[in-house]
Write a protein that binds this DNA or RNA. Structure first.
Length: 711
DNA sequence: GTAGGGTTAG
């Protein structure tokens, strides 16, 4: 594992735009009492088990959602356990249920609502043209009204419905709806409301939909499953999830059973909220009612497990479909592939894709986008390139999102030339255009290979063709010019970006901080001046670290406070860079303090792992300076263990990672020279790349000889 | 978009 776009020293300090955040930044979790641990001992290294230490930063308490069971309560208490009698009768018309004291719970109707069939309307052509003319025009209300009077055929029920269905946007649909209502030519049935609501849904006009629904209730017009599912999905699209649930509950209360369409719409409401338990509860209640879910419902299930990165859940979906003999369709496959990616299972995604192709389902651009993204993230260059070849030779569909994903994949894999070919193809192509994603992906690549000339040329081209630089592009350029020591260019890009409205985020700040860590004198001051605009507290903290008189307690409090206000994925990079800065400015002990705090705050889970046979220091997610600091710390601890004659395992190892990324092989080399400088008895493994190994005897005799030398 | 549900990018 390695950072995506870094060479040499700063590979883990800059904040690369990798999708690999789980590996790179680690997950944070909570709580070791830092205040009770003695700073001097740093015992955390050898006391920690393979379990991640839990940081005691309660950083996200304000965002806490109600518990899952709390959220499910309204459904389970008010509805699902107590379905109205009428509904129960509807859902099981031929039931031979004999135990009336324990009615079989039923939560959905197994019959889908029947749609009325259209009778052929010979005037369809004229009316559609009429509707299209109205839709495309820009009339005032009066003019619109005048044109309506010229409707080519009398506004009978069927004619009016046809026009209503073809009008857009929603303002015109509603205008026409009100027009037929005031003319009072025929009673407005449910279907008229449903059609009007659908148009409102396109315009995301939930409030108006709700008003129409109340109007139906007031006038005694029946709300059916189509009405409810339209209301619910509109609420969902407007992010009004409580409204979606409210209308679902209202439906049961009026004695109407949802059919499977409404039911999966609600499943999706919970899926979008990430409420896995609720989705499963609804799903199981549906199954218990005799429901065989269709592919749409399975796509919802796959989505919710994908979002949670829950591989067992994904397997469950596959098993259920197999058991119920439901054949996955394209969307289900796409969703499952996405889910496999989120669960970090590239191999399973690959075999699922082959299964899909074998079963005769032709992949579309979304399928290929999902898969290319997975291969890029997994750094599976061969599979990614093979797939690209297959796409070309099979003529599988491409779109601009797929092109941009291919570019990002190239960035993940360091495929500069392939990316340039793709970029060139897109430039020539008629059906896709280079957009800010494409340019940003290229900046990412040039930033990673350190090609400052090409990055600058691209930056200038963007200004010329009017594509705005976003915060990611800015970060890539800062990284690129920082590494090339073109600090004046860096400052210029930063200033221009801020002027054009880029709001620096934590990743950009981390990137600036990493440049500070390897710059000197004037250059460092120039970069700090940029950082001052973006995050003044960080600059103050850097100055505090440099000042010998700052006490540990103050460092601890200020660091904690800074981390609290830093997004999760930028915390470890911040800590890495700050450690590097301390080491570069001869504040080695300060570096040890920061590493200790970082460990306590959960930024380095699994830094030290123990088995009875082997203790291992895992520094793959550390910057060079942090890795050196951690190694020194470990040696101190091991020395104490030897001196106090406590037991050691047979093998001690340090893992720097092999640097599978083309641009990131710096850590192992830097680590090797540090080991050499300390004359520590660790040897780089020949079989296992990225491992440094010592035996217990090596370590014991090394400690003893050092002790003898200083005695 | 032909009255209702599900899938694509740092």
């Amino acid at each position: 594992m390695a950072a995506k776009f870094s060479t040499g020293l700063d590979i883990h300090c800059s904040i690369p735009y990798t999708s690999d955040t789980k590996l790179l930044y680690g997950s944070s979790s909570s709580s070791t009492k830092s205040s009770r641990l003695s700073l001097k001992r740093f015992t955390i290294l050898c006391n920690s088990t393979s379990k991640s230490p839990k940081p005691n930063l309660d950083l996200d308490s304000s965002k806490k959602k109600p518990s899952l069971s709390e959220q499910l309560k309204p459904l389970s208490n008010t509805i699902l356990d107590d379905p109205p009698n009428q509904a129960r009768i509807l859902s099981k018309p031929k039931s031979t249920w004999v135990n009336p004291t324990r009615p079989k719970p039923s939560v959905l109707s197994l019959q889908r609502q029947k749609r009325s069939t259209y009778s052929y309307n010979p005037q369809i052509r004229d009316l559609k043209n009429f509707a299209r003319r109205l839709s495309e025009s820009h009339f005032s209300d009066d003019a619109f009204l005048a044109v309506l009077e010229d409707i080519p055929h009398p506004p009978t029920r069927d004619n009016a419905l046809l026009v209503l269905n073809s009008l857009r946007p929603w303002q015109k649909t509603i205008f026409f709806f009100n027009w037929i209502k005031t003319r009072n030519l025929f009673p407005l049935e449910t279907i008229f409301y449903n059609v009007a609501m659908k148009s409102l849904r396109f315009g995301r006009q939930f409030q108006q939909i709700e008003e129409l629904a109340f109007e139906m209730i007031d006038s005694g017009i029946e709300l059916d499953n189509i009405t409810y599912s339209t209301i619910i999905t509109c609420a969902k699209r407007c992010n009004l999830f409580d409204k979606a649930v409210e209308w679902f509950e209202r439906m049961y209360k009026t004695g109407l059973m949802p059919d499977e369409v409404t039911y999966s719409a609600v499943l999706d409401v919970y899926a979008q909220l990430g409420k896995v338990e609720e989705v499963m509860s609804l799903y199981e209640r549906g199954r218990a009612s005799g429901w065989t879910p269709d592919p749409v419902a399975f796509a919802v299930l796959a989505k919710v497990f994908g979002a949670a990165g829950d591989y067992d859940g994904i397997r469950f979906v596959l098993q259920e479909m197999k058991a119920l003999e439901v054949q996955p369709n394209l969307v289900v496959y796409n969703t499952l592939l996405e889910a496999m990616g989120k669960a970090g299972k590239p191999g399973l995604a690959r075999s699922l894709f082959e299964e899909m192709v074998d079963s005769g389902v032709t992949p579309d651009a979304k399928t290929l986008t999902a898969l290319i993204k997975i291969y890029g993230k997994a750094r599976w260059a061969r599979d990614a390139l093979d797939l690209w070849e297959r796409m070309k030779s099979n003529g599988w569909p491409m779109d601009f999102i797929l092109y941009n994903t291919l570019l990002s994949m190239c960035a993940d894999l360091g495929l500069e030339e392939v990316a340039e070919t793709l970029f060139h193809d897109m430039r020539k192509s008629d059906n896709c255009r280079l957009d800010s994603w494409s340019y940003t992906a290229m900046l990412n690549i040039y930033g990673s290979v350190g090609n400052a000339e090409k990055a600058m040329a691209l930056f200038e081209e963007m200004s010329r063709v009017g594509i705005e630089l976003n915060v990611m592009g800015c970060t890539c350029l800062v990284q690129c010019f920082g590494r090339a020591q073109r600090i004046d260019d860096l400052v210029k890009v930063f200033e221009v970006s801020v002027q054009r409205g880029v709001r620096p985020d934590d990743r950009l700040c981390g990137c600036l901080l990493s440049v500070v860590s390897y710059c000197k004198g004037d250059d460092a001051d120039k970069v700090l001046a940029c950082l001052q605009q973006a995050n003044p507290r960080l600059v103050t903290f850097v100055k505090m670290l440099e000042d010998e008189s700052t006490s540990y307690d103050i460092v601890k409090e200020e660091f904690r406070s800074i981390l609290t206000n830093t997004s999760d994925d930028a915390r470890r990079p911040f800590c890495n860079c700050l450690i590097d800065i301390c080491r570069k400015r001869n504040r080695a002990e300060r570096a040890h303090e920061l590493l200790y705090l970082g460990t306590v705050y959960g930024l380095y889970p699994g830094l030290h792992t123990k088995t009875p046979e082997e203790w291992r220091l895992n520094v793959r997610a550390l910057s060079v300076g942090a890795a050196q600091t951690a190694f020194e710390e470990w040696m101190r601890t091991l020395a104490k263990i030897v001196q106090s004659e406590e037991p050691l395992p047979e093998v001690l190892s340090a893992n720097t990672g092999a640097g599978t990324h083309k641009f990131s092989q710096g850590l192992a080399n830097a680590f090797a020279s540090h080991v050499e400088k300390l004359a520590a008895p660790f040897k780089q493994s020949e079989e296992k790349a990225g491992f440094f190994i010592a035996t217990r005897e090596d370590v014991v005799s090394w400690v003893q000889s050092k002790a003898a030398a200083t005695a």
